[in-house]
Design a protein around this nucleic acid. Sequence first.
DNA 1: CTCAGTGCAAAGTCTTTGCACGATT
DNA 2: AATCGTGCAAAGACTTTGCACTGAG
Lengths: 147, 147
Amino acid sequence: MSAGREVRDAVLSGYMAERGLKTTRQRTLIIDTFFEVGGHLSVEELWGRVRGRDTRVSVATVYRTMKLLAESGLVHAQNFGDGQARYEVAVGREHHDHLICTGCGAIVEFENDRIEALQEAVARRHGFQVRSHKMELYGLCRNCQRG
Amino acid sequence: MSAGREVRDAVLSGYMAERGLKTTRQRTLIIDTFFEVGGHLSVEELWGRVRGRDTRVSVATVYRTMKLLAESGLVHAQNFGDGQARYEVAVGREHHDHLICTGCGAIVEFENDRIEALQEAVARRHGFQVRSHKMELYGLCRNCQRG
DNA sequence: CTCAGTGCAAAGTCTTTGCACGATT
DNA sequence: AATCGTGCAAAGACTTTGCACTGAG
């Protein structure tokens, strides 16, 4: 994934330079931690992991940093119905959707071009011009079906 | 839609009788108002309409009543990303998904069996047993595309 | 008469924000 | 040195809840 990291750093550096944003200890730590985990993290969860490495980071900064990443296009905010926003890596990836296990909370990503095509067709039929979409399938993963 | 109303009343009466719940002025008013509008209402919006008819109803009661309806299976809570829950009629209807206009907020419902079938297939391929799903297409409706 | 329901305000979540201090460019 | 960033706590938005009073059955 070093290629991924390069893309990420390039996008982020460009965005920050362009806006005169500064590179701080907190931002670096939060961003590195987030991308190491790979996404689907809530702010609270991310904050937990960040504090494991440096206690002197406040939640407010994590909120602010994730918002910044979202604005730069590096991540997307998602909402899986548990009341808190979850972020996932957005840059350098195809669009995808989610399978969410209601038992253990596992999140599996998938893509399906046929579904996307059908979505487009449905939208067109209703006169809509689709900009984005969101599809989530909730159920039990293989492990949780045994419970 | 008088048939719809009968189904609704039967489901609700059954549910209430079974649990010893009482029929009150507030509940009747909230429920009637909600079903007259037909759904996709947030609590705040519904409260507004209810208060138009009777000022003596509190938001808390609207929250409690909608929660009751959701538990009885008459309505479903949805979350279209604007930060507040929206309820829609659930009983006596097929599953459906939503097209949401990011311009004017219009919400259009649709169903598509082929998409549902593909969703099932995807889930099976990942070992998931799907219980429910949610699909939203965001974009501009015909009118808003002119803007 | 009894127990559920209601109004009100307080409390709970998650998230944002104002302000004074601290760090980066 | 000039700004932007951070921590902290307060404030916001939405929703839930405790409590004393009201009303349905």
